[in-house]
């Protein structure tokens, strides 16, 4: 390394310092820009739906809850609607009422014992599986729990 001239040394030193400074601002800047995209606040929260006694074995019951959702510095409340059903009054299943095809709201038709979507005549069975029509997958289901007589669902 004896042939390193003063000029060459200075050029390299400047390049190293410039790179270090650029990295010191650049690396945090990347985290700053992509940060919110990986933010999953709210997921995993338990949302209370209502008392367990309102759901009896038989037809699923549409239950609604209001959820506070954070988007950046704003919080807005969203309504979550879920069909809750039970076979024994102890274990509950909760199905989203949003059709997995194009997002229309499904309703329960007791005569046919299925969920009917008005948009493209899709029908889902009681367990949420696709009976007929275009939906690509069964209705989304939520994890449920029963606590002090209140049914909770876990936000996805």
């Amino acid at each position: 390394m004896a042939d390193v001239t003063r000029r060459r040394f200075l050029v390299r030193a400047i390049a190293v310092m410039a790179g270090a400074i650029a990295a010191m601002v650049g690396a945090p800047a990347i985290g700053y820009l992509i940060g919110p995209s990986s933010d999953r606040s709210g997921s995993g929260d338990w949302i209370p739906l209502g008392t367990a006694t309102s759901v009896q074995p038989g037809d699923p019951v549409l239950m609604k809850a209001t959820v506070e959702r954070k988007s950046g510095w704003l919080t807005d409340s969203q309504e979550v609607s879920v069909f809750v059903s039970t076979e024994n009054g102890q274990n509950f299943t909760a199905l989203s009422n949003v059709c997995t095809h194009l997002g229309c709201r499904v309703r329960w038709v007791p005569d046919q014992s299925g969920f009917f979507c008005p948009c493209h005549n899709a029908v889902f069975a009681r367990d949420g599986s696709v009976a007929t029509g275009p939906p690509p997958r069964p209705l989304d289901s939520f994890e449920t729990k029963l606590e002090d007589g209140t049914i909770f669902i876990k936000e996805a």
Partner: peptide, 23 residues
């Protein structure tokens, strides 16, 4: 209605927001 809230969000909640705003 949002200016200060967005500044607070940058400073306290975003990763490295404090650094960018501080610089």
């Amino acid at each position: 209605a949002q200016a200060h809230a967005s500044v607070r969000y940058i400073t306290h909640e975003l990763s490295f927001g404090w650094l960018i705003r501080g610089l």
